[in-house]
Each structure stands twice: as C-alpha cells, then as structure tokens.
Simulated scan of single mutants.
Amino acid sequence: MKIGIANDVAPVAEALRHAVTDGTGHQVSWIARTGPDALRLCLEARPDLVLMDLNMPGLDGVEATRRIMREAPCAILLVTSHPEDQVGQVFRALGAGALDVTATPVPGGGGNGAHELLAKIKTIGKLIRSDHVVPAVVRAGLQRVPSLAGPVRHLLAIGASTGGPVAIAAILAGWQAPLDTAVVVVQHIDASFAGHFARWLNDQLSMPARVVAENDVLQGGVVQVAQSNDHLTLSAGHRFHYRPEPLDYPYRPSVDVFFACVATHWAASATGVLLTGMGRDGAAGLLAMRRAGHATIAQDQASSAVYGMPRAAAEMGAAMNILPLGKIGAAIRDRIRE
C-alpha cells in the first residue's frame, strides 16, 4: 500500500515511516509537514492511505481531511497523540471523512502502538479492496422468526461508517424518540473509542445515548450504540449480544449483521437507515429489512462524505427512499408517527 504521512513533528513522522515500512511491504510516498502540503501532495501523488495528525500548521487535521476528501479523496486514518483528549476534533475529522483513529506510537516506547497502527492499516487495506463478501447470516435467505411482544413498538436501526458520527448527530438532533421507539446505532469505530462516541452523541442530542452491553434489552427513548469490535446482534427476545463471527469480515461491528437480525427477529414496525461510508457494508442487510416489510432509507450521494455504502444499497434496490441528509430526520419522524 502507498502511504502518505501528514505530521509536522520530524521525529514522529520518521517513527511512523519506520513503523509502516519495516518488513510490511508498504511504501511511504511522501511526508507532509503542514495541512496545505498534505492536500497538495494528495493532488500530485494520491496515496492509498494518509496517516493524518490532528494538529498541524496551515490546516489542522480536520480541515485537511475535509479538503482532501473533496478534492483528492483517499482513505485517511487519524494518527494523533492522546486522541481521547481531543474527542471533539476526532469526531469532526471522522465526520469529514476519516476512517478511524489511533494513538501515535511513541518513539522508543515499545511495539504495542506500532502493532495497533499496523492492524488498522491492514483492516483499511481490506476495506479499500473491491472483494466484498456478504456475511453468511445475510446471504442465507433468512427465515423470519417473530420477536416477543414488548414495550418497544418501533425500532430505528442506523448504520454508518466514514463520515457517520456527524451524519448520525444531524439526523437525530433536536428530537426525543418516543418511549415506545428504540434507536440503535452501528457505527464502524474501534471499541477503544466507542465509549467516547456515545458520550459525544449524548452531548449533541436531546435524548440520552448509551453503549450497548452484552445481554442488554432494547430501550425506548434512548440511543443505544454498539461498543465492540465484535458484531452486534439482536435476539428474538429483544436482547443484544456480541459475537466475533464472521471473524474475517473487515467491517466491525457489521451493519449487515445487525440489519439481518432485525429482518429476522423483529416483527413490529422498523426503519433501517444506511448513511455515508466506504465499502458496501449494510446494503445487503438493508435489502433484507426491506424484504421483511420494513421501511428503508439511504443517504444520497451529494450529502455523503463517502458514497460507498449508500450507493451499494441504491444499486441493490435496498432503499425505499434515497434522501439528502437534511431530509432523513424528518422522514424518520414521519414514519414513526404513522
């Protein structure tokens, strides 16, 4: 993989160069010391992946990400010191199109940081290839098993990836879901940052946002957020579980897997929403939901940070409605009122 590094601290940039090239087969195409340099180099020699620091002169990592995704789109991984102390910036950058975030490996600080960085690069390499395989749980042509009766009468299932955090906040902003309506979010994000994501959403929204723990039940009036690198599933008894299979599926947690569970086990009314993201995860699951009689919505191209997952849904006929981000929230509320 051809990799660009955007970091203005020379020793850190050199440590990153060494970490990603030492016996990995990756190549560092360039090192940029400023945000404008990163944009220019992406335009001149677009890499497969950019390792983007959040704090740089000229353009910070958020704005550099936004400009690169608009003018020379490529995969971007945030690699920055102490990301847990920069949560607001992290989620703005993820909303602008960055795929994921990891802490900068400390030079001379051991191999764990470099190992985590290389693991994320490996996963991103799988995401940007075209060999997408739909999980067997979605391919199988699921037989519907009605769920047990309960206080939740409508399930809003939202899936997103690249650009998703800001998009999710936008469609749920200023709204309190009724107590008989559950909201479940499956966002591609590393487990180490999922708790920060739930707390960030909690600050953005009028209703509470909480991470989903193993064996939790559906709750009305609350945004429940997947928090594991394992896949979130929903049983016929309205309980959440995490499972590692499919192990080799690069999208974690998988939107396809959760949407397929809704199609299989949820007999009451539901709405599936597939937002911006790289790849095809969620499209087959959204189609399963539509075939099960649920309402389905996909974000349109113009408002998507990356038009991958929604495009796949549109091509498969999985979405009953393809809408700009600014109209999805109203469509959800209209559906629930019906």
Rank of each mutant, 00 (worst) to 15 (best):
R66Y: 07
D60R: 02
P244F: 07
G279I: 07
A213F: 10
A270P: 06
H188I: 03
S192D: 10
G23I: 15
T104Q: 06
A314D: 07
L54A: 09
S192Q: 13
P324E: 12
Q301N: 12
G88W: 06
T34Q: 09
V225S: 08
V137H: 03
A313N: 07
A226I: 05
V90R: 01
E245Y: 11
M56Y: 08
Q219F: 03
V222F: 04
A284M: 13
L94C: 02
N202E: 10
E84A: 11
A114I: 15
V225Y: 09
V90D: 00
A267I: 04
L155N: 03
A160Y: 05
Y249V: 02
M69I: 13
S130L: 03
V262G: 11
A226K: 11
A140S: 13
D85F: 05
L118S: 02
C74E: 06
W175E: 06
A45I: 03
V90S: 03
A173Q: 12
A140M: 14
A182H: 11
I171R: 01
D248N: 14
L286T: 05
E71M: 09
G108T: 13
W30V: 09
N112A: 15
L99A: 07
E63P: 00
S269W: 04
V152S: 07
A98I: 12
W200K: 00
G58W: 07
G221F: 05
L54E: 11
L172P: 08
L287P: 00
V79H: 13
L51N: 13
A6G: 10
R144A: 08
V138E: 04
P105D: 10
L77M: 04
P324I: 12
P73M: 10
L218R: 04
F91T: 02
D100L: 04
A72D: 08
A140E: 15
P11L: 10
L232D: 12
D8A: 09
I68A: 07
H132I: 01
T123G: 01
Q299D: 04
I328N: 11
E245R: 12
A198V: 02
A292F: 11
A98C: 14
Q224L: 14
L274N: 09
L232G: 08
I297G: 07
A312Y: 04
M316A: 13
V217N: 01
Q176M: 07
I171P: 02
R70D: 10
R153F: 00
N229G: 05
H265V: 04
A292W: 09
I31Y: 03
A114W: 03
N55R: 15
S130G: 09
P246G: 04
D216L: 08
H196P: 00
A319T: 05
E214M: 04
Q227L: 04
V217A: 13
G237Q: 05
A93I: 06
T102S: 02
R70C: 03
A136M: 14
R333D: 08
L54N: 11
A226Y: 10
R139Y: 01
D53H: 04
R33M: 06
P310F: 02
S81W: 00
Q187T: 01
S81M: 14
R239K: 12
I332Y: 05
A10E: 15
R129G: 09
H82K: 12
G174A: 05
Q27T: 15
